[in-house]
Design a protein around this nucleic acid. Structure first.
Lengths: 329, 329
DNA sequence: TCGGACAATGAAAGCGATTGCATGATTCTG
DNA sequence: CAGAATCATGCAATCGCTTTCATTGTCCGA
């Protein structure tokens, strides 16, 4: 007894394979009695259509690739889940690839994926644009948090939320700020830094730029240490993970947050709500980001060579416990 | 210009498709000049073999499924990465599925996956054994952290590490302990609880059992609150996430850790080292767990119907800052 | 009552690769 | 130098499914 195929079923039911196939794909073309008989037989035999065979003829893999630079970064699990969920809704599965922080790996992975997926979603802060373009040639692709003119992209724009964060701190009396910058190659880092700078200039407040720091907990500790070398009473961390590092470093040195300094993070990952004090941060609309990415990708797949789409979703500011009034000197 | 196939290449090089195929699969069977010519042409045309076609004839998808109950649980990203890494080494890709904490989804997903993968790795604390068995029927499968007699499994056994943890606390003078139990349906939770109980009995110390609590940060907070209702000076949390909740709850109530109470976690996820104080915990050998799971699965795939394998890997105790000497009353 | 429209089904041609077998060209062996 | 062994290559079947086209049988209107 080998795996059941449409032929096993066809034979069993005394119909042709074509009919069996239709029962699954275009059931309305098959008469009710036959349809039911076939379905019953299929169920009884435990029939599962071979996706390889189907893919071969339809040219669709019903699968999308998802490339993340580092799944251990708490930013991604939420995204992965959102993407997976909406992919499932579209009848596709998700193939996850962790590029392990290596640009070379990213590009290599895309090449690897090509033949197995209908398209890819790439969350790739690192790779060079040229490498990305090349890798995506002829393959429907949407970039996450990294716009590129000729490839579709879905990005989270935190500019206005960061303005809100600044205003929030300003209202609390802070006048001297520090910007703890993230990896220089990261689009998000550049973008966030720019937003903070613009805000500070607009407000006419002092802004010390520190960094760049690696987007890790350790990087955050270094940033925290650096922060103490300045007079800033409030700091914008690149993301929540670094903010946590900052918090830890400050705590380690007996500096109170938000008593002595205020810290705001970015992304609102799980960590933000498990750390003490809870992080004031900017929440990224993960669910939306994922859903949108899948939708855009689907469109690219259905109309290959269509114009690239660019979607920008705003984050929003959320005040928690890592920010407070300026310490009275 | 449609997608290049072995035929395009064959034609271009004046050889047969079979030869082209061999260049990629059994290059030693092809003469050097032809081989190089074909490779050059393939590269030039940007040829990528169709995995659907290959899969159809070889019967292999070169892909394994990975089902996790909740990718946002910090336990999993490390595992996912380890699995992906070693799958890649075996020439397979990983299809990730987040069952979203639903046993029904888990089983449904396995069914869905069947036709697209060569086998699955299931990290499924929830589903009933019967459901799992049924879902895995005829599909190579290895269970993670959940042994079942007739299915292969790879589990992390923390028993001895928990003994070490207990001894560590005992040495620090603690005599009254609390066990904050995890979800009752989880094998790991049961196992850990059992280990702690055995240890406590062996030592003849007092052990208050609290719970079960959900394996979330919130669950941890509740556990923390409950802990304060007891005289225990040291607590075993179900995992790091709940331990963090405990820490947060205690901190919120002005209870110092490790000054007033000691807390040990389990798993050693990223969180353990980002929280203040750093968690004393039991590290799970994630890398090994993942690698082993893939190896076992590979064996199952190559010899379907072979006897199930059961691997048990020990965790190890690591002392950090959430444990200390018993407070002097 | 007959022709055409329509519904239900089957036959068969691929999709793009792999692979066992056959073949022709070389090289070896005694 | 004949026959065997070896090597490189081609032919063609096959994997399981989808889909076009053709066929058959029904039903309806005129």
């Amino acid at each position: 007894m080998s795996k059941p195929t449409i032929y096993s079923i066809a034979q069993r039911c005394g119909v042709s394979a074509a009919t069996v196939s239709r029962v699954f794909n275009r059931p309305e073309l098959v008469s009710a009695p036959v349809r039911e008989q076939v379905m019953a037989a299929a169920h009884e035999l435990g029939y599962q259509p071979s996706s390889a065979a189907r893919g071969l003829v339809t040219g669709r893999a019903e699968m999308i690739g998802l490339i993340v630079p580092d799944i251990t970064n708490p930013f991604f699990p939420l995204l992965v889940r959102a993407i997976q969920r909406s992919a499932e809704r579209m009848g596709s599965s998700v193939m996850l690839v962790d590029a392990e922080e290596s640009a070379a790996a990213e590009v290599r992975q895309v090449a690897q994926l090509r033949s197995r997926v209908d398209g890819v979603i790439v969350a790739s802060p690192r790779s060079s644009s040229a490498a990305l373009r090349e890798a995506a040639r002829g393959l429907p692709c949407v970039l996450l948090n990294r716009p590129l003119r000729d490839l579709s992209s879905v990005v989270c724009d935190n500019t206005s939320a960061l303005f809100d964060a600044g205003d929030h701190l300003h209202k609390h009396g802070h006048r001297s700020f520090a910007l703890l910058t993230g990896p220089s190659a990261s689009w998000a880092a550049a973008r966030r830094a720019q937003a903070v700078r613009r805000w500070a200039r607009g407000r006419g407040v002092e802004l010390a730029e520190l960094g760049p720091f690696r987007a890790t907990f350790k990087g955050g500790r270094q940033a925290g240490a650096a922060l103490l070398g300045t007079a800033a009473t409030a700091a914008f961390a690149f993301d929540d993970l670094t903010a946590c590092g900052v918090l830890a470093e400050l705590a380690g040195r007996g500096v109170s947050v938000p008593g002595d300094r205020s810290v705001v993070g970015c992304d609102d990952v799980l960590l933000a709500r498990t750390v003490t004090p809870n992080l004031t941060t900017v929440t990224a609309p993960m669910e939306d980001l994922g859903t949108t990415a899948v939708q855009v990708l689907t469109r690219q797949i259905e109309a290959p060579g269509g114009a690239p789409e660019h979607v920008r979703l705003p984050g929003s500011f959320v005040a928690r416990d890592s920010t407070g009034p300026r310490p009275t000197p």
